[in-house]
Amino acid sequence: MTSFQDSVLFRYFFFHWLFRDASVKELYQRSAAIAHNKANRHHLLAYLRRWIALTLLMYFAGIMLEQFNTMACVFFYTIAALCTCTIAKITVAWIFLGKHQL
């Protein structure tokens, strides 16, 4: 039986499985992990587009429910706010993985 973290839905929205941990003490392993992460940097743009689409969908669902004067719009606005945090995280990762070391 597979866990939720191995499912296609999880991998469609969360990108952590693409990258390696670069906090190891061994210099060669850390260098290899950083090179691997920089090579997979381009995938972050696809994840960024997915999260932006999900944020807009939740935001507009909140707007539509607000027109009917229901409190259910709070749920969708909260999800949109949490998605915005993930967009910021992806953007920062994309920027920093693109920087060259001096």
Rank of each mutant, 00 (worst) to 15 (best):
Y12E: 05
L48I: 04
F10S: 04
L56F: 06
M71A: 10
L54F: 11
Y12T: 08
Y12A: 04
Y12F: 09
A22H: 13
A35H: 08
F75D: 07
K25G: 15
F96W: 09
G98D: 11
I34V: 14
A61H: 06
I95P: 01
H42F: 14
M71F: 09
I63M: 00
R49V: 07
L45W: 02
F76Y: 14
I34N: 00
A93Q: 03
L57Q: 08
A81P: 05
I34C: 02
F15D: 02
L27W: 01
A22N: 13
T55Y: 14
M71K: 06
C73S: 15
R20N: 15
I52R: 05
R11W: 06
L54W: 07
W94G: 01
T84A: 13
V92I: 12
E66Y: 03
R41A: 12
V74C: 04
F14M: 05
M1H: 06
D6Q: 15
Q101C: 04
L56Y: 03
K99P: 00
A39T: 10
R30S: 09
R30L: 08
F60L: 15
K38N: 07
Q5P: 02
A81M: 08
C83P: 06
A88N: 01
L44Q: 12
A61T: 14
M64E: 13
L48F: 03
F60A: 10
Y59R: 09
N69V: 03
F4V: 03
T86N: 10
F19E: 12
H43F: 15
A88H: 01
L54P: 10
R50Q: 06
K89Y: 13
A22Q: 12
L102E: 05
A72T: 11
V74G: 03
W17Q: 07
R11M: 07
I79V: 15
I34P: 00
N37M: 11
A93M: 08
K38Y: 01
F14A: 03
Y59D: 05
N40H: 05
Q29C: 09
A46Q: 08
D21E: 12
W51P: 00
T86P: 01
A35R: 13
Y77W: 10
Y59L: 14
L54Q: 12
L44V: 12
K89V: 12
H36I: 09
S31P: 02
L57F: 15
Q5S: 13
Y28I: 08
V8F: 02
F4G: 00
Q29D: 11
A88V: 01
V24T: 13
Q29R: 15
H100C: 01
S23V: 09
L97W: 02
K38Q: 14
R49Q: 06
A61M: 14
F96R: 12
A32P: 02
L56Q: 11
L18W: 04
C73Q: 15
M1P: 01
I79E: 06
Q5R: 12
F15L: 05
R49M: 05
R41E: 12
I95T: 05
F68Q: 06
F75H: 06
N37S: 14
V92T: 10
W94T: 01
E66T: 02
L54C: 12
H100M: 02
A80Q: 04
A46T: 08
C83N: 15
R49C: 05
T84E: 09
R50I: 03
I90S: 01
S23D: 13
E66L: 04
E26Q: 02
H43I: 06
K99Q: 03
V24R: 11
L65D: 01
S23A: 12
F76G: 03
